[in-house]
Design a protein around this nucleic acid. Structure first.
Lengths: 126, 126
DNA sequence: GCACATAGTGTCAAAAAGGATACCGTTATG
DNA sequence: CATAACGGTATCCTTTTTGACACTATGTGC
């Protein structure tokens, strides 16, 4: 179970907002869910996308997402081990949320990714 | 400054998602921002909307939101004290995010508010 | 004087989240 | 045998967040 921010969510008209945040607010969950939007990924594949994410933390967050029914974990009987993660149907419904978060972040938190070879200088008022 | 989930946000394409979550993920921030969408509110007015929210926590979260430029705090030279909170222009840009969070929460986390007088029984499979 | 209204602040403790490290299991290969 | 690949787990520690409690400021009315 993800973090329990609120023991009960019948507090006010805004509670659904908090309820959703309760599902996705662990460190790395947002970006993990975002990556899985584009398709199934294996553990290390995911991890390589996440700079500075430890194995321990990734495992924890994935297990919580799985427990909350947002992520599906498929174990293949192979050696070396092969485990794939994908969004559940329920997890897929988070797409509008994730895209909204991404859009806002790009506009207000960090500069968007700049494709290689396309460098643009931006002057920031002193 | 709100919680520092990530020291740096240049880690991957999904980082804007984490960047936005970093701004709004304190307990009560989501629901506070949501309420302020509909207009300016005073401290206790806000608090009455938030079941179980302590004065201390509300103050803390409001101060963080203010520091991050999402909320404007207006102090009136009156007694009793009168302080009003409202969304900044920057805070207003979070509307799509907040509405997406609310929509998902209503559909997947909790039942939506039922207007008084309109009671509907829902059977949950054992 | 006291009580009331409003909106806090300071401080410490408890709870929760995140981090570090060592270790594990399986099979395949040289 | 050692090493590699992959995806973990256990355990303890550190840091952060939240909660509890006491206290604060101002003017007004009784």
């Amino acid at each position: 179970m993800a973090r329990t921010r609120h023991a009960r969510l019948d507090c006010a008209p805004g509670c659904p907002v908090e309820g959703t945040l309760q599902m996705i607010d662990g460190k790395w969950k947002g970006v993990v869910l975002f990556h899985l939007l584009s398709g199934t990924m294996r553990f290390n594949e995911l991890r390589r996308q996440l700079t500075n994410c430890t194995q321990r933390m990734l495992t924890r967050q994935l297990r919580e997402l799985e427990a909350d029914g947002l992520v599906h974990r498929e174990v293949y009987p192979e050696v070396p081990p092969r485990v794939e993660y994908s969004l559940t149907a329920r997890g897929r419904t988070l797409e509008p949320v994730l895209l909204a978060l991404k859009a806002w972040g790009e506009d207000h938190v960090i500069a968007p990714e700049i494709p290689a070879g396309e460098v643009e200088l931006t002057l920031v008022p002193g």
